[in-house]
Computed example of a mutant assay.
Amino acid sequence: MIFTDKKGLVHDVQLLNLKCNRECKVVESKGNSWVAECKHDCNWRVQISPEFPLATIIEVVKKKFHFTISYKKVWLARTNAVTMVFRDSDESYLRLPRSMDALQAFNPGTVVMWDMVPKLLSSSFRTEMYMNCVFWAFKLAIEGFKYCRPMICIDDTHLYRKYKGKIVAATTVTVADKITPLAFAIVDKEMIESWGWFITLLRRHVCRDQEGVTLIFDRHRALLSVMSRICDSPAV
């Protein structure tokens, strides 16, 4: 069976337990991984992980079907399974412009900014534009920031699968001490140019003319360099 997410799998397992009058115990639950087994003598075990080790898959197939599958076939099968659940990476990136257009269409005032880079195609000797970074901030977040505490926390996390990169998020805290998102960006990698581009757009479209805003971030060298440059330049 194929589940779109971890939550759906857990829900179906719980329903099955109710129907069969059985109880399962969770052995491990972290991130996208989830392992559970029956507390009774059912001898079953459920395990989900988007990065299931190839060696484990080979061992499971051998134990269940008494057949040793090749490493290449296992890799292709796992790749196809991940694509079926999470879609193809190329397709996802191709859908990104339309998704951003929809955000702006149904959320008027939402800011979306693209950073495109030219790439020469050796096969046809022509140039095509490729996405380097994309920034977006919802209108409600932009307007609501003036009523929040004058502070912004910036953090990022890695993107995996075919195309590497990072997704950056800026959040703030309301007067009721609730965390609320302000802006997001998908960048190629964590470096001075990417951080400078994101913080400049954050200051221009979210902070605007508001003074005295405190920025909270880890003391990454690239960020320290960017902040020093931006603070010394009134143009940004």
Rank of each mutant, 00 (worst) to 15 (best):
Phe217Thr: 12
Leu94Thr: 10
Trp195Phe: 11
Tyr147Trp: 14
Leu94Gly: 04
Lys73Trp: 14
Asp177Asn: 15
Tyr130Trp: 09
Tyr93Glu: 06
Ser89Gly: 12
Lys164Trp: 02
Pro150Lys: 15
Glu59Ile: 01
Phe65Trp: 04
Ile199Cys: 05
Arg221Gly: 00
Ala222Glu: 10
Thr4Val: 11
Lys178Glu: 12
Ile199Ala: 04
Val206Pro: 06
Val175Leu: 13
Ile58Cys: 02
Asn17Cys: 14
Val10Trp: 03
His158Gly: 05
Thr180Pro: 15
Pro234Lys: 02
Phe138Thr: 12
Tyr147Ala: 15
Met100Arg: 08
Lys72Glu: 08
Met116Ala: 10
Val82Gln: 02
Val74Met: 01
Ala170Asp: 04
Asp218Val: 09
Ile199Asp: 02
Lys30Ala: 05
Ile179Glu: 09
Ser225Cys: 08
Arg219Ala: 14
Phe106Glu: 12
Gln104Lys: 08
Ile48His: 04
Arg95Gln: 11
Leu16Trp: 14
Ser70Ala: 11
Asp155His: 11
Asp12Ser: 12
Gly212His: 09
Pro53Ala: 07
Ala137His: 03
Ile58Arg: 03
His11Gln: 13
Lys73Thr: 13
Gln14Phe: 05
Lys73His: 14
Phe125Glu: 08
Thr157Phe: 02
Glu193Asp: 09
Ile152Ala: 02
Ser233Val: 01
Val175Ala: 15
Ile230Trp: 00
Ile179Trp: 10
Val168Phe: 07
Phe184Ile: 00
Ile167Met: 08
Glu193Tyr: 06
Asp177Glu: 15
Ala183Asn: 05
Gly144Met: 11
Val27Cys: 04
Cys153Pro: 12
